[in-house]
Design a protein around this nucleic acid. Structure first.
Lengths: 221, 221, 221, 221
DNA sequence: TATGAATGAGCATTCATTCAT
DNA sequence: TATGAATGAATGCTCATTCAT
């Protein structure tokens, strides 16, 4: 995953000083660790400060409120995922279909990191109650589907825009759904490989199966 | 969804009296409402007591600790889902494939209730940090996959056990993944119907696509 | 001064229980003591709790917020003053003038209690920034002037309403102004008696000095 | 009001440099503004620094402690009032009585500035708990009464020293008491003019009313 | 059973102050 | 001089839990 971006971060104060920026990163890394370990709602400033090896007062010097910090944390984590999607377009394979499969495999492989496995369910839960998380999550999946849609369209140019979008939505949600089963430390962690194979075949079939797709009808939003 | 079972509930004390059992149900219903509204971690005894119209002291009479209450709550909710799966086997359709599709459609339709949409992400997040939730969730999905596997096996008797299990796992996780996208109030709520159609075609294809499945290999639990 | 009224007090919860009501009184008395000793703005929940011999948590059980407590405190103190005014009307003297002088002497004498000396300046300062205090203070002085006006009118029935109000206003503010000089522990504490005499002569002269009063002119508010 | 004197100010360090003195004035002006707006006890270094457009660190360079700053602030404000009194002696009128009335009117008019209205109650409250404020306030009112006493003595040379002092005390406290009623934004702001008239007549009567004054008795301090 | 009362730990936040640069 | 950074104490408040009645 790509590294966090501090230029646009921080709610309390912008500073050109290196010391402050380094500590900012220290704080966000600590917060991320606590987030992954304990979950979003169990995060406390005390825990973050302790993990970062600083005082709570100092933490509040960087972030006026806990909410500011948590938003920066979400920004940071989600931005790194978005960056990945955008970089991954260029990734390998001769034919469009090969590249599509390559992306699918990449995405499923990514489930198999503790961070991803623990982070996303937390994000989904959060988005049920937190508008900011909802927006951020929407933006990220919009990008993911856009990337998928690009490859799908390339692989079968006869598909309408709607059909492409539907397929992308199905593919994306199918993959996300695996998180709880084949993700790191999950009950079917061992089935990661066969899931990749099944998913690829299944999704590629879909690209050329006319009967699976509605003609040009009732999609909205 | 089936109604909760109180016979095996309650951590503080077992009672044969109806009054106690009614209040127990009152409490759990209130807790469920708070859970759905605010999320697992934001639940407070005060909120539950208030919603139930009783005092905190009285709440503590029924549940020695908050954890006890929350476990009973999870038991209750998950049991109702498990009951559903078990009842749903009998559900309609001439051929095995029709019955399979029927189940798939049923499961996807269920995503479109606020309760389901809000509850499951919370459960998944919880299972990252709470062993009890992990076990309960595992048990529920075991049942779901068992039911799916039964229909899949019936639909194509040539599939090995492993292949059936892989397909069931893929189907189940694909459907769960839709929660965050086509669930109630989610960004692609309107695509529920096309997702059902795509999913059915996709899954049914899978049942007869030899190349999609590994021969007899590497699954473990 | 009259004793506080608990029936209409308390922001958190109404209760018929004696234990709670006694503790409520305990809290308000402790708060009053801290208020007199340290001033309104230096009051902390910890200080009040300590003075009352209870825990901060318990304090918060009675008052959800500090503001609630402070408002009850102001209510209590000011109500006792208002009660005094209303009771004092009946107070002695043959002629109206004697009764007027009697009230003036009573009011000036009251300045010579630590409580009054310390409380009122605090209230005046508070009213510069706190709307609730402003309203309460206005209500109290309205009553005081009403009582004064009643006696003034009786003493000289030829005065117009406006003239009566002006005199009452002058008398009231003159007396309040003494707080910082002849109040308890103040620099001219010893001049209390002569101030009483001067004030009486001065105010009584005023009642019959036509040239001191505007005809029927420019008063508003 | 006269401008503040910085020569004797500053607790941290004396400096001959203009830059430092200008910043000192900047700080005290900012502090005064915050003081008037929020009240003595709600002043924070952050607020002062922000209003002054400097950093908290820099503020602490000029004043080692918050208390030092606040004392300088009181010095500055009170000195300007004292300066006024001393200058005002020269102020107009043919006869001593006219000059006396002129001063009374001047003092009452001064109540009608936001600054005065908000500052003095704060000072009185402060003096209940802060020795420094008590001393400063005493010094200021000593000067005020001295000035008043001079004019009173001139107006009626037959008065004993004690009698003069008593009258001055009564006049001064009467006027101060109006602050909460006819001061800027106060409930009887509109009665300022009639209060001036009443006060003048009342006080002048007093100068020649033998019966109002005790013979040669009990004043101290 | 049910309630009001009470506790103590924990939380986010504010603030005066100190310090290295 | 002036700043950013850092600290630690204090504050109002929430909460799960306990207890006497």
């Amino acid at each position: 995953m790509s590294s966090p971006d501090l230029k646009h971060s921080r709610r309390a104060k912008a500073t050109p000083y290196d010391k402050g920026n380094m500590r900012l990163k220290l704080i966000l890394d600590a917060a991320k660790e606590v987030f992954i370990d304990q979950g979003y709602n169990r995060i406390t400033l005390r825990n973050i400060a302790q993990k970062a090896g600083i005082t709570v007062g100092n933490l509040n010097y960087y972030y006026k409120t806990k909410e500011d910090l948590l938003r920066d944390l979400l920004d940071m984590i989600l931005k790194s995922y978005v960056d990945d999607f955008e970089r991954v377009i260029a990734v390998g394979g001769e034919t469009p279909i090969e590249r599509f499969e390559s992306l699918v495999r990449y995405l499923i492989d990514d489930l198999n990191t503790t961070e991803t496995t623990k982070f996303f369910p937390e994000l989904w839960a959060l988005s049920n109650h937190d508008e900011y998380a909802t927006q951020l999550m929407k933006r990220m999946y919009d990008v993911e589907r856009e990337v998928l849609a690009g490859l799908i369209k390339e692989a079968n140019t006869k598909l309408t825009s709607d059909q492409v979008d539907q397929i992308a939505l199905f593919v994306s949600s199918s993959i996300e759904g695996m998180t709880m089963f084949v993700g790191s430390n999950k009950s079917h962690e061992g089935s990661l490989e066969s899931m990749k194979q099944i998913a690829c075949r299944c999704f590629v079939n879909l690209l050329f199966d006319r009967s699976a797709l509605t003609a040009e009808n009732e999609q909205q939003n």
